[in-house]
Every structure is written in structure tokens, then in C-alpha cells.
Amino acid sequence: MSVTTVVLAGVGGQGTILAGDVLAKVAVAEGHDVKLSEVHGMAQRGGSVDTVVRFGETVHSPVVDPGVADHLIAFELIEAARSLRFLRPGGRLVVNRRLVAPLPVLIGDLPEPGDLEPALAAEGAIFLDAEALACEAGSPRSANIVLLGAASYGLPFAAETWRRIIAERVPPKTVEGNLRAFQLGSEACAEGVCEL
């Protein structure tokens, strides 16, 4: 397969769009053709959001179909389970151990989903606590960059490129914290190579 597909799945407001933007720019910097797709608008008000980044020699479609993604980076447990359909068998699955209950659950209209971790573990998930690592990096709002670090282990890009693009893309005052966050994320998930 000459095109690699990465899906970043999360909840509106979790920073998947910025993470997707960084990833896409890293792929461009490394000489790939790239397409990125995201949905703006209504869904951003706390709904489910998927950002898709595809890179390779020539990329046609910006969207992902079920069974096509090589990497699924889930920012939240329920969204991990929901977006699992996109990940092909053998793909790399990184899951943040955070649960953001949707409103129907918050208000008691629907029951809490059961413990999703065993089901995700059975699918080969590599778990991490992105928020805790972000705090450890001294940058509590950089959980999305921690998750990029976790994604980076499975992707064919130089650490230097990642660091340069992150530094360009985040607010100047937060560069150091974000770079630490990236480092912690990649160390936490130094396992699980995507089978080609």
C-alpha cells in the first residue's frame, strides 16, 4: 500500500484538529503527498470528531472508509470504540484512557458504557494516560501533543521533523512544554508496530 491513513478520533474541543494539522505538516515536510480531512461546524459543539490524515506518493481521497486506516489514535475511550471500524486488521491502535461521558449518559437517559478497556485491549490497543503525561510535562493542555508523540512511534518520520513542526505550530510560550509532552507520549508508547 503506497498510502498510509491515520485517524485521530476524539470529542469536539480535545484538540484533534491541531494534532491532525501538525501530523499533516510533518508528512509534507518529509516529502509526501498529503490529504487531511476534518468536519467543522455543528459537530464541534462537543460531538464526536474524526480527523483523517493520509500520506504517500499520490493521495486521492481525503476520507477514510471502514477497514482502511493503518493507525487509529483515539483521544477518548468511547470514540476509540466507535472509530474502531475504520482500523484495518493489523493496524496500530493507541488509546487515551480518558472517558468523556456524552450528554445522554450524563443526564441518565442512557447507561454508562461498560468497561471498554478489555474490548479495546483485545483489539490490540496500546493505552496511555495523555492528560497525566501532559501534566507531568508541565503543560496540562497539551494532551493532544502527548497523543501525537504516541502516534509518532508507529510513523516513519524523523523526531527532528516532529519537533520542528510542533515548535512552529503551538503558541511560542508553550513550545518547551509541548516538546516535553511529545517526548513523554512517544516513550509511553514505544511498542506496537503497524503490520504492513
Binding site: 459537530a43 459543539r45 460531538g47 477497514g67 470514540e79 470504540a81 449518559v105 442512557l110
Partner: peptide, 20 residues
């Protein structure tokens, strides 16, 4: 040929957009 997909995890609550 349609790519094979993984089994879905059932009973996931929907996540509708909401007032902040």
C-alpha cells in the same frame, strides 16, 4: 473487494453536539 472490518463494540452511547 470490500476491505474486511473488525467486529464492532456494541451499545456505545451516541455523542450528539450540545449547548456548552
Amino acid at each position: 473487494v470490500v476491505p474486511p472490518v473488525r467486529a464492532t463494540i456494541p451499545d456505545l452511547p451516541p455523542r450528539p453536539p450540545l449547548l456548552c
